[in-house]
């Protein structure tokens, strides 16, 4: 927003100066040119025959994948139960580990800004930046395949996410309430329990159900690498091209995710 003085003395008010408008116009021109050039490049590198063929192939797979093989369901109950357990236990363990990390990372509660806080931030970044599938691959090599590897993979992957959101909530608390508790002669731990914890409870509950919701999705694919759950059935069905089974598995996953979403929405609504 700028005010511009004209030579005749009148004041006009525009969003941008003439110079800024020119720069923006030129920016758009360059952007469009790059887009057209990139489009050409991709087009040349694409085998268009396969693309034109895609609808027919998709139709073919669809016709082979329907109807789902319902009788296969009896083999899915246990893995879907495992999947839900991986998500739930993984989330609970992650929260236990995330709480101390969050308190160490928050500027207003960290015991030391120059040593402990960077370590906590490093834990957050490193656990967050590696996908749970990759964690699962690593953990299977270390502790062998199975549900336990899946739980550990999910919980490690979730620490960073939960700790980051939680420490942001801790940094946003009202310090005066903490001051008031400190002034009564309360110890550090009591100040935390009375001054800080009540203030972050809604955020904590929200984070917990949100992450649980995400973890249900993530744990459905862990079986692809052998870390337990329904992903194992998915990968073996895909390998033998048993399309009706794949359809059923996808439907089951969809149902689990929808239920998870519904539960977490209910819980969040009840708390906030």
């Amino acid at each position: 927003m700028v005010s511009i003085k004209r030579s005749d003395g009148s004041q006009v008010w525009r969003k941008r100066t003439t110079g800024q408008s020119m720069v923006r116009w030129f920016g758009w021109l360059v952007g469009v040119a790059v887009f057209v050039w990139a489009w050409n490049f991709i087009s040349e590198a694409t085998t268009w025959f396969f693309v034109w063929d895609a609808p027919r192939i998709a139709g073919d797979i669809f016709s082979r994948a329907t109807p789902p093989r319902w009788s296969y369901m009896e083999k899915l109950w246990e893995p879907i139960w495992d999947t839900l357990n991986i998500a739930t236990l993984g989330t609970i363990f992650a929260l236990f580990m995330a709480i101390p990390v969050a308190f160490m990372a928050a500027r207003n509660t960290t015991p030391s800004r120059w040593i402990v806080r960077p370590i906590a931030l490093l834990i957050i970044v490193s656990t967050r930046s590696i996908n749970s599938l990759i964690w699962a691959l690593l953990l299977i090599a270390i502790i062998g395949p199975g549900v336990f590897a899946g739980i550990v993979a999910i919980s490690i992957r979730s620490i960073g996410f939960c700790a980051k959101l939680l420490y942001e909530a801790i940094e946003e608390i009202n310090e005066v309430q903490v001051e008031a508790i400190t002034a009564t002669g309360a110890s550090k731990l009591q100040t935390m329990a009375y001054g800080i914890v009540p203030q972050i409870m809604p955020a904590f509950a929200g984070i917990a159900v949100f992450r649980w919701d995400i973890n249900i999705r993530e744990s459905t694919v862990l079986g692809l690498v052998g870390a337990g759950g329904i992903g194992l059935q998915l990968s073996s069905s895909l390998n033998v091209l048993a399309w009706p089974q794949v359809t059923l598995i996808l439907l089951v996953i969809l149902l689990a995710v929808v239920i998870g979403e519904w539960v977490s929405a209910k819980v969040r609504g009840a708390i906030i």
């Binding site: 005066v176 309430q177 008031a180 400190t182 002034a183 009564t184 203030q199």
Partner: peptide, 19 residues
Amino acid sequence: RRERRRMGMIFQEYALVER
């Protein structure tokens, strides 16, 4: 902390723990 117990404090914006 022991001496703080002998000094009660009352605040401008009440400073109650709201929740």
